[in-house]
Design a protein around this nucleic acid. Structure first.
Length: 1078
RNA sequence: GGGUGAUUAGCUCAGUUGGCUAGAGCGACUCGUUUACACCGAGUAGGUCACAGGUUCGAGUCCUGUAUCACCCACCA
């Protein structure tokens, strides 16, 4: 159902392509015409791509534009190639990120915090934000030309996706892969939630090493008068110390093992123990730690992951001294008896305790930083501070709030990704060719691949391939060192964890354990109260709908609910069960994306057709966060990979090599570029800048809304010496708002602060190319007739044969590069083909005679070349090619030549990809045409040098051997056309006219009949002579080397001999001409 | 601390198994508005391929080392 073209004739259009005037109508036509829609029952090999769902936190930036351009190129190419192609769009709820931006906005606009609202009310506010930005994002994608199947748009938190999350969680819970654990997590004190390992980013911080003296004592706390010195960067955590450790191999210090210290401030008596982990001091060591170490390590299991592990080994108590916001607190794990004792000093307790408690009161409620200062001061005052040394070291920071991460002891849900069925399966999925040698168990399993999936394999389980290949290493290393995944987040915005819990009494726990031993699950909870009996009831009535788990240590009973069945919920909530308040890590739902977008857990036709998807196209930063987890989940739940190809593309940076980001104000809104240069220009530029090695640098300019001129915004230097752009730009005393700042909702334009759009000169490349294509088509269309006679290749001119040959090669080049995800060369190859070959040479060759009856075959060839060019360019420049396509269809509907006869189609978006017959490759034409080009180049050089007016027709004659002359003779007209000369003689007898300029070449000599200054001619010939001599010297050097002639491949040696002969012949001529000049 | 990538013309970047007399776009300079295109055409200039060694008949390309930059990973004594 195609709409007939309604455009004006092209002749009425201006010489420049105006994207803003053309793109909306074309977009509308595609959307109305269902151009992007896919049908699972349609013909064609399946091809599918899942969009990496953008976060609904903010509008898309140029990084997204690149990512989606590449996917659209692949999708459109697949669709045109006859595949049953679908591109599945959607957005991500981005739990922590979205909640954070909304919290910020609510605080700014209403002065209220999240906790001032009911949970549902605040979620409503986030939902409104999500709706707004999802709409913005969708509109951006559409205007970029992204050919997503919009009927299938998904959101990671909509109903179908929620169903998938619940099902996946339930299955993993039942399979014993999800567990509750109390351990150290990466805690973000600002957003007050746990973070996964890869949500933590390290930054180097200039800090200090503090050397604190701890008094040594006996087990009863009697001081010996001695002391040990611990070294730490975090003095404030000493409040939670429960031991001091020494390396047993550390001769001078090992003697302290078995003694005790009385922890200052707290007066806690803690042991000195031996542990290999402790670094032995060595002032000459390469290891900074060994140089700085004192040999005594304070052990704070609640606030340091290593200390936690030492604590586990030695069964130390864990004392948490902080509240969730990171302030010092006595209410989150500090032993009450210790505190109470300190609170009320008596005669039985050493007097210092009272003093300590009084000081501790000063600490309570202080931030980590303030507490650090206070404690250091205290140690100094007590003469217990031995030394302070500056030390630069890495500190983990929240990727969201950028606050320093606090290792924090808390209860969380974990997914056991370390299980072989998850991480092991992901490792084995990596294609053999990309694996590195490894001793990891996954590769040495006795029965590999058998245990990978819950079900038998239903598709590929191996062959995962990264492009560029080096990223396979990131993937492998990640899985070899993976730790269990903390999946709970203390947020409101996200998938609520579908687990209810019940705290059992000792009696209940006893019964439960007994029943567990007897494996009589049915009698669970018999003879106990309602709350506990509920589980029995539910277990019997809904055996497939709930999963039960008992936590021995905490006596908690957990019930995982598969779906929100009313009776189950009623029973649970009515009998004292409490639903877990936390939500799941965002990436849990993202990990299911290739399944959930296609209907899983239902076995839909779409799921079986389009999963595995064809390729995942993303940036390297989320290989661990996302790629890994999709691979593990798809393998686990479906028994096959979610995709085999992973294409990792470049990142876009600003002109200073900085990552673009909203907070730095250097982000560019794709809509600004579409506004100024057009979607095609943006797409083409981004694609052609995408190489496999380099990140893309995109200098950011701004358009001044006051004057309209473009300028480079000022950059200010931030503390780290990093250059960042100011979000609100100042210029000539007037301030303005960048459209990116506007989009973030932080600033709004006004009369005082009008809107300044970002831009970058880089996009002129694509814009110029679109205009060039536009004009080449205008030329063609003004010369083509509706029905040109059929052309037979044998009677085509040299230029026709040459360009058709090149066209075939262009098709092959496009196919080859797209298959290899080599977008730079796909775009670059077509640029060169259209601009240099079609426009500069072919059109210039046929231009003068194109309207004559004799040129009918050239017109047919031209129409065909244009047809193919538009098809090949459509994936990257869909708008302008579609617009020109309707013009071409209107003027010359019947195109094609023998061997290249593309199928007609009303709309380019649905047109078939060209298939080339290699018989059209004309080696003779490909050899002769460049000779013409060479001669033309030489003549043009002379004309330019001699300042011959371009319009003046100059006589030209060629001196060459008969054989060569015969070859050239049919194409003399071409030379005349391209050089504006008249050929007066060709052959071995041609003599040089008096005063003529000489043009030398490998096949002969040309004489340009112009009066030329002798000195200039001599200069030009001498220059050529020098070039030839240099070349000859190189070639001779190579040939005189016996080892070269004997060892190098024979065809190379022959090539060198030919080159030498040609250079020598030309040098002879040049010298002869030089002699004649004198 | 470990890893990855980069360093090529004034700028931004190509350069696939070693064969290069090293390319493109932008910018610069000269000429030109001949009805597809001045968002254009024709032409010119501009590079000891970061540095130092090595392998080879031959190195921008492979190896070793050094320097600088970027990013990723690592348990913040």
């Amino acid at each position: 159902m195609s709409t007939p073209p309604t455009h004006k004739p092209l002749a009425d259009l201006p010489p420049s392509y105006r994207p803003a005037e053309e793109e909306p109508a074309i977009l509308e036509r595609w959307l109305q015409g269902d151009a992007y829609q896919a049908n699972a029952s349609a013909d064609g090999d399946p091809y599918s791509i899942c969009i990496p769902p953008p976060n609904v936190t903010a509008p898309l930036h140029l990084g997204h534009a690149l990512n989606n351009t590449l996917q659209d190129i692949l999708t459109r190419h697949a669709r045109m190639s006859g595949k049953n192609a679908v591109w599945l769009p959607g957005t991500d709820h981005a739990g922590i990120a979205t909640q954070t931006v909304v919290e910020k906005r609510v605080l700014a606009e209403e002065g209220k915090r999240r906790t001032d609202f009911e949970r549902d009310a605040f979620i409503g506010k986030i939902q409104a934000w999500k709706d707004e930005y999802e709409a913005t994002i969708t509109d951006q994608l559409k205007q970029m030309g992204c050919s997503c199947d919009w009927d299938r748009q998904a959101f990671t938190m909509d109903d179908p996706r929620a169903k998938a999350v619940r099902e996946a969680f339930f299955q993993l819970f039942k399979d014993g892969l999800i567990y509750r654990g109390k351990r150290l997590v990466n805690w973000d004190p600002v957003t007050q939630t746990a973070l996964a390992d890869d949500e933590v980013e390290s930054k180097d911080i200039d800090g200090n090493f503090y050397y604190l003296k701890y008094p040594v004592c006996d087990a009863e706390g009697n001081l010996t008068g001695d002391h040990v010195t611990v070294a730490t960067t975090r003095p404030e955590t000493m409040l939670g110390d429960t031991a001091v450790a020494v390396n047993p191999k550390d001769e001078p210090r090992a003697k302290y093992i078995g003694q005790f210290v009385k922890l200052p401030i707290c007066d806690r008596v803690i042991p000195i123990l031996g542990d290999d982990y402790v670094v032995i001091p060595d002032p000459d060591s390469d290891d900074a730690k060994a140089r700085m170490a004192s040999g005594f390590l304070k052990v704070t299991p609640a606030h340091d992951t290593n200390d936690y592990e030492i604590g586990q080994r030695h069964d130390l108590p864990i004392i948490n001294v902080m509240a969730p916001d990171g302030s010092i607190s006595k209410d989150h794990g500090w032993p009450a008896e210790e505190w109470d004792a300190a609170e009320k000093p008596t005669d039985d307790v050493p007097s210092s305790v009272g003093f300590v408690a009084a000081f501790a009161h000063e600490l309570l409620g202080q931030t980590r930083e303030a507490a650090r200062k206070a404690i250091v001061r205290w140690f100094k005052d007590q003469d217990l501070l031995a030394e302070v040394k500056p030390y630069r070291h890495a500190v983990g920071h929240s990727y969201r709030s950028h606050a320093a991460i606090e290792p924090y002891y808390s209860d969380q849900w974990y997914l056991k990704v370390t299980d072989d069925k998850l991480a092991g399966a992901a490792l084995r999925a990596l294609d053999e060719s990309q694996r590195e040698a490894s001793s990891h168990d996954a590769f040495n399993a006795k029965t590999p691949s058998r245990q990978d999936a819950k079900e038998e394999p239903t598709g590929p389980t191996t062959g995962l391939t990264f492009t560029p290949p080096r990223y396979a290493k990131t993937f492998q290393t990640w899985h070899e060192n993976i730790r269990d995944w903390c999946i709970s987040r203390q947020l409101w915005w996200g998938h609520r964890i579908p687990v209810w819990s019940l705290q059992l009494t000792d009696q209940q726990a006893h019964i439960f354990r007994k029943n567990l031993d007897n494996k009589t699950d049915d009698s669970l909870g018999e003879g106990t109260d309602d709350a506990f009996a509920t589980s029995t009831f539910l277990k019997k009535k809904y055996p497939d709908e709930i999963g039960l788990r008992f936590n021995e240590a905490t006596r908690q009973l957990f019930c995982c609910v598969r779906e929100d069945h009313p009776e189950i919920l009623r029973k649970l909530s009515g009998t004292g069960w409490v639903q877990d308040p936390d939500v799941l890590d965002t990436w849990f739902s993202s990990a299911l994306w290739p399944m959930s977008t296609l209907g899983w857990p239902e076995r839909t036709p779409e799921l079986d057709l389009w999963n595995p998807t064809s390729v995942l196209c993303t940036a390297r930063e989320i290989i661990t966060l996302w790629v890994s987890r999709m691979v593990m989940f798809n393998l686990y739940f479906l028994g096959r990979l979610p995709f085999k190809d992973v294409f990792i593309h470049a990142m876009i940076q600003d002109g200073h090599g900085q990552k673009m980001s909203k907070s730095l104000g250097n982000g560019v809104d794709p809509m600004d570029i579409i506004h100024s240069h057009g979607a095609d220009a943006m797409r083409f530029t981004l694609a052609s800048m995408t190489t496999q090695t380099q990140d893309v640098r995109m200098p950011v300019d701004m358009v001044d809304p006051h004057s309209g001129e473009t300028f480079t915004p000022k950059f200010i230097t931030a503390s780290g010496g990093v250059k960042v752009a100011a979000p609100t730009q100042e210029r000539d005393g007037k301030s303005m708002v960048s459209s990116y700042g506007l989009a973030s909702g932080e600033v709004k334009p006004s009369d005082d602060q009008p809107l300044a759009r970002n831009t970058s000169e880089k996009f002129e490349l694509g814009q110029r190319f679109a205009t060039k294509l536009w004009n080449a088509t205008r030329f063609a269309l003004s010369n083509l007739a509706e029905a040109e006679p059929d052309a037979v290749t044998s009677s085509l001119s040299l230029a026709d044969k040459w360009i058709l040959s090149k066209t075939v090669r262009a098709i092959e080049h496009a196919d080859k590069t797209l298959k290899a995800y080599d977008f730079h060369n796909y775009a670059g190859g077509l640029y060169e083909f259209v601009w240099n070959e079609v426009c500069d040479w072919y059109i210039e060759s046929v231009k003068p005679d194109i309207k004559t009856p004799e040129a009918a075959k050239s017109r047919k060839a031209l129409a065909t070349v244009l047809d193919v060019s538009l098809r090949l360019l459509h994936p990257v420049m869909p708008f302008v090619t579609e617009r020109l396509w309707s013009g071409l269809n209107a003027v010359c509907p019947q195109r094609g030549v023998l061997g290249l006869d593309p199928v007609e189609c009303d709309e380019l978006v649905k047109a078939p990809w060209p298939i080339a017959d290699r018989a059209l490759i004309d080696l003779e034409a490909e050899e002769v045409f460049p000779r013409v080009q060479h001669v033309v180049g030489m003549v043009r050089e002379v004309r330019a040098g001699a300042k011959v007016p371009p319009r003046e027709v100059v006589d030209f004659s060629l001196h060459m051997e008969d054989a060569e002359a015969e070859r050239v003779r049919p194409n003399l007209h071409l030379v005349e056309t391209l050089t504006n000369t008249k050929m007066v003689a060709v052959g071995p007898d041609t003599e040089k006219p008096e005063g003529a300029a000489v043009v030398t070449g490998p096949a002969g000599i040309g004489y340009l009949h112009v009066q030329i200054d002798t000195a200039e001619e001599a200069e030009r010939l001498n220059k050529r002579k020098a070039e030839l001599e240099k070349s000859l010297k190189t070639l001779d050097g190579r040939l005189s080397n016996e080892k070269y002639t004997s060892k190098a491949p024979s065809h190379l040696v022959q090539q060198t001999r030919d080159q030498r002969a040609a250079a020598a012949a030309e040098l002879d001529e040049v010298e002869r001409q030089l002699a004649a000049l004198e």
